[in-house]
Design a protein around this nucleic acid. Structure first.
Lengths: 223, 223
DNA sequence: GGGGACAGTGCCACTGAGTGGCATTAGCTG
DNA sequence: CAGCTAATGCCACTCAGTGGCACTGTCCCC
């Protein structure tokens, strides 16, 4: 993985999500972009159809007609290409957090940033993300890798916020806040996936909202 | 990984942590146990001394004088043997949760179970756990794998609690509670590791307590 | 106490992920 | 058109992880 949130530092952060009117790029770049995207799309399809373990990278490379070497110039690992939609989400999210004014309760700010991030994703992102989640459910290696993304993002958020609001904040409390944010996100996205992605990103946004609303109750409720 | 919390279903759950007066076992079992423990100890030492990536399983097997095949009969993967102390912790924790009466606020119950679990670990566990955490810091694959353990444990707790308190609980709220518990644990253990494991398990227990106390504040604090 | 039964082990060959090196191609630039 | 360079393809390699089979040290029962 190696702190994959910032992703492979290829041209620019989020290469799949952004709906490209990128006809305006040098041909070489365009080609590379297309290869990268085709790899992710084909991978998701093959993994879903035939199973993750049953699909080798050679299979994928055959299907896309690139060499394995080229695959690894585009993605760090087999897990990485399967989790492209995760990477898209978190890299976009980080951008949003970095460009935000930090007033009011931090937890609310983080949630707001998530709302706008979800709204800003590529139209096709919902579908890809759902497929990715369903795939990850059955593949521990993907689960773990995906959690790794979240964890890296958590660290990055803490760093960003610390830089921007001075060193006078309680580091532990800050970390705790961000971890709780991630906890709520996990809960919400799990719920959304269990419902088969009902309502697309709007449904997901709604579940996020509801989940955050339940936090106070969750702290005090009995079993 | 494959839901490694319950670990390899070898003889019995936690094989390293429990302080053995296990001279009372059949010889065969004892031998196997010793091999298993030696593997974990040697692995942790080699990984720390030479680096995780720089140490191959062949190196480890040479040092312990077993075949690679035998290694894989004891541990699922290279990550698994490095994270033996994590596995010990969570499998013990699950036992404690399963044997607990569920009265009062769930979050407090989970925290109490953590206290008693930490107290019940092998005398050597502190050192191993700290070494494991420091190792994981520099190795993304271990980070991810470790998060996977937590995640599996989260699921197991939710299942256990659901079974024992009837189906009338709000599944999402329950999940959220457990996720928040894990969030606090992550924060506390990170802090403990950053302090070089100061105070051993008692220090860790204290940090856990302090971190939980900060939760209400973390929900409302501003950046 | 001797002799099967069998769990646990060693050995060997194999697959598949991931890397390094070098020659080749294809897009950019003057 | 010619030269430059980024991107690719190809080949050989390491290492994690698996399957199969022969072997051996324990256990257990007579």
């Amino acid at each position: 993985m190696a702190l994959a949130v910032k992703g492979q530092k290829l041209p620019g952060g989020n290469l799949l999500g952004v709906s490209d009117d990128l006809r305006a790029l040098p041909l070489r770049e365009r080609k590379k972009l297309r290869t990268r995207r085709t790899l992710a799309e084909t991978a998701l399809r093959l993994f879903t159809e035939r199973g993750y373990d049953a699909t080798t990278l050679d299979d994928l490379c055959d299907a896309v007609e690139v060499s394995k070497r080229t695959f690894f110039r585009n993605y760090r690992s087999k897990e990485d290409v399967a989790l492209a939609s995760d990477s898209d989400l978190w890299s976009t999210y980080l951008d949003h957090v970095a460009a935000l004014k930090l007033d009011g309760p931090l937890l609310a700010v983080l949630r707001t940033a998530l709302d706008t991030t979800l709204g800003a994703m590529d139209p096709d992102w919902d579908r890809r993300f759902l497929a990715t989640r369903e795939l990850s459910d059955g593949v521990p290696a993907l689960q773990a890798h995906s959690l790794g993304y979240c964890h890296d993002t958590t660290g990055a958020i803490v760093r960003t916020v610390t830089e921007r609001s001075g060193a006078d904040v309680d580091g532990v409390r800050l970390r705790l806040t961000v971890e709780i944010f991630v906890a709520a996100w996990h809960t919400a996205s799990l719920h959304w996936t269990a419902q088969g992605g009902r309502g697309g990103r709007d449904g997901l946004t709604k579940l996020v909202e509801e989940t955050f609303a339940k936090i106070p109750d969750a702290l005090t409720c009995s079993a």
